[in-house]
Simulated scan of single mutants.
Amino acid sequence: MNEALTALFIHLCVPLAGMLVYSLLCRKILQQGASPVFLGQLFLIFICWGGLLMVTLTSLFWQWSGMASLGFGFLLFIAPFLMGGVGVCLARLSQPSTSQRWAMRAFLGYFGAVALLIAVATVSR
């Protein structure tokens, strides 16, 4: 029973919470005049952070699976390019809004979090 609750939390509750937070955030920043391009950038940031969270939770509290390996492959081979593209676009803004500055912090924090997780995984081996 405990294992089923863990799986339900990691694979259902976390993604649903992410989609809910993203939609509420989009509604708020659309009212402030955000562009559809920025909403797309924000979506990519949410996807990458969500993938990192799900792979981390899976490795800590559940059992590794083929889906976890696919998620890890995404984080290793695709997410850095997606986040890099978002970072370049955000860095080119001459006068970023508050939301865009927060998105840039999320971009930078993502690479910091990945580096920290790699360091922890290397040391704990």
Score class of each variant (00 low, 15 high):
G87E: 11
P15W: 08
V86T: 11
L93W: 05
M104C: 11
W102H: 10
L70T: 07
V114Y: 07
Q95W: 07
R27G: 10
L24M: 12
L57W: 06
W64E: 07
A7H: 12
G112N: 09
A119F: 06
F43K: 08
L60D: 00
F43A: 14
K28I: 06
M104L: 15
T58F: 00
L53S: 10
Y22W: 14
L108C: 15
F43E: 03
G18K: 01
V114T: 12
T122I: 08
S94K: 14
T58C: 04
S124H: 00
L60F: 00
G33M: 06
A34H: 07
S59M: 07
L5D: 11
S59W: 02
A68H: 06
P80C: 06
S59V: 02
R105Q: 10
L5I: 07
T98W: 11
S23C: 06
G18Q: 13
A113I: 10
L60N: 00
L12T: 15
F107L: 12
I10T: 03
V37K: 14
W62L: 10
W62G: 01
R27A: 13
T56M: 05
G33K: 08
F61A: 11
L44Q: 08
M83R: 08
G33R: 02
V37Y: 06
Y22A: 14
T6C: 12
T98F: 13
G71I: 01
G51S: 15
M67Q: 12
V114L: 14
G40N: 13
S69M: 10
S94F: 10
Q32G: 05
G18M: 12
F111M: 10
M67L: 15
M54S: 05
F46E: 04
L52G: 02
W49A: 06
T98Y: 09
L39M: 09
V86L: 10
S99N: 12
M83E: 06
T122G: 03
Q100P: 04
S124Y: 00
C48F: 03
W62T: 01
V37S: 13
L90H: 04
Q100F: 05
L117E: 02
A103F: 09
G71Y: 03
F111G: 05
L82P: 01
S65W: 02
S35W: 05
